[in-house]
């Protein structure tokens, strides 16, 4: 019974993350949590639950660290790739 694949996922650099928890609260489907283990700096970094991500990118903008979070989304079908506005990045529509 194959589950419908999620629209996105995130990776978190556990040594850049400062464990502030802003992404946990910001994530609409609540698919982030703290790791149980401390990282080298003694904080619990955030991690992805492994399911539920929509690839919306909101956690990226909530996070103060430049490179702690990377957001992935299902590649769009070729015809809709690129936007007419010239805005290169995919901002969540809010």
């Amino acid at each position: 019974m194959a589950a419908v694949p999620d629209r996105g996922y995130v990776t978190i650099d556990t040594e850049e993350c400062k464990g502030c928890g802003l992404c946990l609260e910001a994530c609409p489907p609540r698919c982030l949590e703290f790791e149980p283990e401390l990282n080298a700096y003694g904080v619990r970094p955030a991690r992805y639950l492994g399911r539920g991500c929509t690839g919306c990118g909101i956690c990226f903008y909530a996070c103060p660290e430049p490179g702690a979070i990377t957001v992935y989304r299902v590649a769009p079908p070729p015809k809709s790739a690129g936007t007419a506005t010239g805005e290169a990045s995919h901002a969540p529509a809010l």
Binding site: E16, K18, C20, G21, Y61, P64, E65, P66, G67
Partner: peptide, 23 residues
């Protein structure tokens, strides 16, 4: 590999918005 800002500081978010716009 991390900024000097405190955990949860708004400066980092502001930096990211500026950096994204410039690039």
């Amino acid at each position: 590999h991390q900024t000097h800002y405190c955990s949860g500081c708004g400066h980092g978010i502001a930096h990211k918005l500026v950096a994204e716009a410039l690039s």
